[in-house]
Design a protein around this nucleic acid. Sequence first.
DNA 1: CATGAATGAGGCTTCATTCAT
DNA 2: TATGAATGAAGCCTCATTCAT
Lengths: 217, 217, 217, 217
Amino acid sequence: MSKTTFTNLSSEKQERFIQAALTEFAANDFQSASITAIVKELGIAKGSVYQYFDDKLDLWLYLKKHCEQVKLSYIKSIKRSEYSDFWKFYRAMYANGINFDLENPLCSQFLYRVGFKEMSPQVMPHLNTWKKQANAMFCQLIEAEKKAGTFNKKNSTDVMAHFMVTMSMSIAELLQKKYKVDFEKNIKKGKPLFGGNSKELMKAVDELIGLLEKALK
Amino acid sequence: MSKTTFTNLSSEKQERFIQAALTEFAANDFQSASITAIVKELGIAKGSVYQYFDDKLDLWLYLKKHCEQVKLSYIKSIKRSEYSDFWKFYRAMYANGINFDLENPLCSQFLYRVGFKEMSPQVMPHLNTWKKQANAMFCQLIEAEKKAGTFNKKNSTDVMAHFMVTMSMSIAELLQKKYKVDFEKNIKKGKPLFGGNSKELMKAVDELIGLLEKALK
Amino acid sequence: MSKTTFTNLSSEKQERFIQAALTEFAANDFQSASITAIVKELGIAKGSVYQYFDDKLDLWLYLKKHCEQVKLSYIKSIKRSEYSDFWKFYRAMYANGINFDLENPLCSQFLYRVGFKEMSPQVMPHLNTWKKQANAMFCQLIEAEKKAGTFNKKNSTDVMAHFMVTMSMSIAELLQKKYKVDFEKNIKKGKPLFGGNSKELMKAVDELIGLLEKALK
Amino acid sequence: MSKTTFTNLSSEKQERFIQAALTEFAANDFQSASITAIVKELGIAKGSVYQYFDDKLDLWLYLKKHCEQVKLSYIKSIKRSEYSDFWKFYRAMYANGINFDLENPLCSQFLYRVGFKEMSPQVMPHLNTWKKQANAMFCQLIEAEKKAGTFNKKNSTDVMAHFMVTMSMSIAELLQKKYKVDFEKNIKKGKPLFGGNSKELMKAVDELIGLLEKALK
DNA sequence: CATGAATGAGGCTTCATTCAT
DNA sequence: TATGAATGAAGCCTCATTCAT
């Protein structure tokens, strides 16, 4: 998970490297993403990559952890306890999530791919444990809301969790469809994923969450 | 979309070939799927593949069409007009769909990947038109149900369509999660994807559709 | 040099086959010319080619002999003895040669390639003997004209022979350059190589032969 | 046109590589020349070629430019202004050209093929512009000599240019014929193309130029 | 005489990874 | 710490040729 040689690098170098690597891994499968392309873009030596990371997988794991931390920094401030209504809390989470998307297009697209599209055999084991953890978190949340009466107790927790996870992860797809956003283009240009019309966007998300609410409570 | 040289083959040979190719394309991206692996598995010459198909993409398109036809053969008998209630119709569709999954694990897994996971640039154009068509079909359906009063008229059709498409395609994921089925293993062993406990499975699906129903009507 | 199976074919079939094969061999090197392309164009089975000819080289040799015979049929009527002046005779030869070019574009282009461009190792041995023979013929001719006083006796015969062979074979290139004719296009469309403006064309050839005359006599 | 990775190589390595590549490209068409053969001869990894050059065409273009520069180094010292008579100048050019042939058999043979034999579609665009330039240069030269009274004003410049280009490029063929030199064998043995009897050779060339002179002035 | 599926060697090219400098 | 040349396996695809029907 990255060698000390990478963390010893100046922040600028680290940042430049991460941006280039994310650009490649956001636009391609794990298998298809090319180390060669990254170093060509950066103009550094191929060997350097192997000074910073053990191998391609190690780099991928680092990027994943990095993006998760960035996203977490947007979300951790939202606390359930500060909202009377679960769905207000949920909407607040999403509002911040969309801010994250807008301000970190590459991270966003990378996580979208990792969470939703990636199936390369090399990374599947890591994804499975990751997804299990995410699912467990949602289950915990749902159990709590069931007790609080916010969620319907008749539905099984895991089905509901699946429901929520799937919908939340698919929001990117909805927006892409609804606003005809060309992710690939925006990624290559380094633009925000959703082009910046965040108000209309929040409205669509609101509607989707409204559907979730009706389904689950 | 396959040359006559392939359709002229004996049914057994065709079937054997399709199984091997599906095994590879169900377990890997378009990019990562390997023609070499297929011919090695089959014990035939590499050149033969190119007697049957123009190239890798042509083979992929053939497999896609083939699987769609197989799936269609399970579903086309279910007609909306024969059901008073939309949701009964929808459940019937899913029951048949799950039969398809159980009896054609490779087709099922391949279509799952194609519809939900694939992002390889070579196949994206084909997927985009395909997905647009699918979406249009759902929208038509929803509009009709809105008129019939089955669906809530306040929600926008496209958000609802997105909701339904996403959920329907993700059912495979639910089942995988719920029954801790290891798709990859089952595929390699040629076993049914869901291990065969179709009753429990239908129950989970029922519940999921129940949630959908509550959300949309 | 072709099996009886080919000569037993109906004239139409033979002709069709020859045209298709010439089209391919006129547009490509021996190595690059593709049997596959020929049978695809003709819509016949690949195996048939190997019923008619031993292999690719055998086919090539047949085409070469065929085209030579066609060209010969245009030229053999011109006899030195019927012309008082060698250069009138030479011009008459060329006039007929150009008729051959105009009426048999594929043969013409094929022979041009064979005589002037081809260097594939597989056919070089055959070309070398062929070229030696052609050279010998020219030498004989020149010796005769030297005796008759038409050619300068001070120049060595072989240098003069080389001079004539080279210039005669390069006429196609001159015309191509002068008239900006796109051979490749015309070949693919089956049009005459020089587009049909034979008068202007003869004028350029006249001038070239004029230069030859000044050089050699 | 070659990557820095090639120019960074030690001179010995570069030279060894160029020799091997020229040997292959001098003996074969662009299409038929085999990268595999080159690396097998050199005993290096196939991948190395693609570290040095973008692709086969890039390598070919590099070889072409390289050989042109080598040839130019033999010829650029000969200046028209230093000769009273055009034909003396022309002979001096050829004398140096033949030195180039003798001392750089591979370059010579490669350029001969490139300028006179090559018709592979991949390289034709590059050849066409190249040949147009060469022709333009000759035309310029001829116009100047026409004004100076050295060349016959009655003949059209382009026919004369064609005449000269053809003869100059075909000299290799004359020598091959006259001295029964087996180019292929000499190339493989790394011997000079014309076996070394340069005096006799210059005499033949002199004679050929004599013919040119008579024709054009 | 015709067919066309099967072959397998060979083509070019890409890529992650290593290692000596 | 950085470099980048070297590697070689693997990728897709083409092709002349064979052979059983």
